[in-house]
Amino acid sequence: MSASPSRASELETLSVEAAGLRVTESAWQRVRKNWSVRIGGAALALLLLIAVSAPWLGTVDPTLFDAASRDLVPGQRGEITTLDGEIIKHKFWFGSDSYGRDIYSRVMYGARVSLTVAVLAALLSLAFGIVCGLSAGYLRWLDGILMRFMDGLMAIPAILIAIALVAMWRGSLPTVIIAIAIPEIPRVTRLVRSLVLSIREEPYVEAAVALGTPTWKIMFGHILPNTIAPLVVQGTYICAAAILVEAILSFLGVGLPPDIPTWGNIMAEGRPQFNQYPHNIFIPGVFLAITVLAVNILGDGLRDTLDPKMAKRV
């Protein structure tokens, strides 16, 4: 392997740093001009809008059982009896499941779960990863033991950790989020640690040490701000992984309880009737795939604009 691409990116970083104050401004401008960021961001904004405004999108209660409107195909009209005994006319855009619940409503509300899990799992694993990575990179005595622990955690496939944790804690929103975040911590830790190891040799850190700045202040005030760009990129990819894992957990029947409308749960309920009513699986599946795709495209765009070193590697 040659040293030339890495040297080129080092030069690039140097020139960016030499530009001084304009760095943040130009990075933000580059992000906004990037088409991957625009497309991925727009799709996600739309999904966020769906999630927030789910009650006003012509939906009914997504957990409402209605024996009279079971197994409807998409587009069919019917009536729903609410818990108060009120009968409302409703068009089942996406059909209904075997309990007579409106799949359109369940899919719209399902966006809430997916996006909540994605954001919270990413923030949680980033927070723990940052603390562990800073500690491992800056406190030499902790490095060996902490990183061996992370190696061990990484040796267990992520889905298995998540499944096992949810199995013992039983599925609820907080346990699912924690179970998804834990296997992502080692990757964040490794990233932060490697960034810290290179940043701590920079002259401004040496200067801070020489001035007697306390260690925690160097870690959070001088080193952490310089790890933000790669962490934003990593965080985006964690969001994508979290959405997928949450859907897998629900789909396998070990995630959130079946009455909570999540895309994975809708698909799990559609499994026995897949032959006759494939839309029960395909419609939430399409939403799931588009959401993950949007996050991944956004992540690629951010990587290309914020983190040129990483962009060259992949």
Binding site: A240, I248, I281, L288, A289
Partner: peptide
């Protein structure tokens, strides 16, 4: 990018 994004069980059912 699509390969990374499509959930394995959705692909299985397709």
């Amino acid at each position: 990018v699509m390969g990374f994004s499509i959930p394995v069980f959705v692909l299985a059912y397709i």
